[in-house]
Amino acid sequence: MNNENLNWHFVQDSDGIEDEDIIRFDLDDKTFCIYKLQDGFYATDGICTHEAVHLEDGLVMDDEIECPMHQGIFNIKSGKALSPPACDDLKTYPVKVEDNKIYIQIS
């Protein structure tokens, strides 16, 4: 299939990635986080909506990502900001794994 046409972008192989791992993915001038949760892979914008810090250094707890700067918390699946000082939601993106390869859909 032609991934480019559907805006699917290859991220990396899925081998060796453990639950609660975070992968950073950069495309042009944008940056994203891909998370391995128990039930699969999910993706959000890479930068915290509170201040400009990358969430790749944050901590995944269940379905939530906690920002490493001020402990703002977001739901990874919905992007919803759950705990201040974070108050604006994160954008989320579809992720799929095919043949052990992770793809993110960025339109």
């Binding site: 810090v53 990358h54 250094d57 944050g58 901590l59 906690e66 920002c67 490493p68 700067m69 402990q71």
Partner: peptide, 10 residues
């Protein structure tokens, strides 16, 4: 910025 938060939380 961002480099200590994870370990501090843990």
């Amino acid at each position: 910025k961002g480099k200590i938060g994870r370990d501090i939380k843990l």
